[in-house]
Amino acid sequence: MSPQNTLKKYERALASQNWKLVEPLMHKNVCVTFSNGTFKGLDEVRGVFVSNFGSIQDEKYEISNLHWAHISNTEAVCLYDFNWQGVIEGEMCSGGGRGTSVLILEDGQWKIITEHLGPFAS
């Protein structure tokens, strides 16, 4: 699988809100930065994703405007827009911003080792 296919699979896994589909795409030393903090290692990242999945019902998640800044035989960097919408505490909510994902090839599989999500630049 290519880094492009891995990121597309990741988008679908996030939209499913099922950690069991997300986890195989994450490196064991993954580091994820959201607006509420930076989470290091698979256990911390699992915790924040499962919490997010539990708080947003009927979520729709998508990425667009992908820009592959670097692709080599062992690493890849992609910048993109992300958007989500879903129900939080009975109320329809939505958001989005810019994301950066860094993927590395390990044991023949592309894995996300770093992800940074933030607001759109003003």
Rank of each mutant, 00 (worst) to 15 (best):
residue 69 A to R: 07
residue 34 F to H: 06
residue 11 E to I: 02
residue 74 T to H: 00
residue 6 T to G: 00
residue 101 S to D: 10
residue 7 L to S: 08
residue 117 L to G: 15
residue 81 D to P: 05
residue 19 W to G: 12
residue 12 R to V: 02
residue 37 G to L: 14
residue 114 T to L: 08
residue 112 I to N: 01
residue 81 D to L: 14
residue 79 L to Q: 04
residue 31 C to L: 08
residue 70 H to V: 05
residue 102 V to R: 04
residue 111 K to L: 15
residue 18 N to H: 06
residue 83 N to R: 14
residue 26 M to F: 07
residue 54 G to H: 04
residue 102 V to Y: 06
residue 8 K to G: 01
residue 12 R to Q: 10
residue 16 S to A: 15
residue 85 Q to F: 00
residue 82 F to E: 06
residue 35 S to H: 13
residue 37 G to D: 13
residue 77 V to Q: 01
residue 8 K to L: 12
residue 55 S to Q: 12
residue 37 G to I: 12
residue 56 I to R: 05
residue 109 Q to D: 04
residue 2 S to N: 11
residue 10 Y to M: 10
residue 42 L to H: 11
residue 106 E to L: 01
residue 28 K to T: 02
residue 101 S to Q: 09
residue 74 T to L: 01
residue 39 F to E: 00
residue 101 S to Y: 01
residue 84 W to L: 08
residue 93 C to N: 13
residue 33 T to F: 13
residue 80 Y to P: 03
residue 35 S to V: 13
residue 93 C to T: 15
residue 107 D to H: 06
residue 9 K to N: 08
residue 26 M to Y: 03
residue 15 A to D: 10
residue 118 G to T: 15
residue 88 I to K: 11
residue 53 F to I: 09
residue 89 E to K: 12
residue 72 S to T: 08
residue 28 K to P: 01
residue 85 Q to C: 13
residue 97 G to V: 12
residue 30 V to D: 00
residue 60 K to T: 06
residue 55 S to Y: 13
residue 115 E to L: 08
residue 90 G to T: 06
residue 96 G to K: 09
residue 65 N to P: 00
residue 105 L to Q: 08
residue 21 L to T: 09
residue 78 C to T: 01
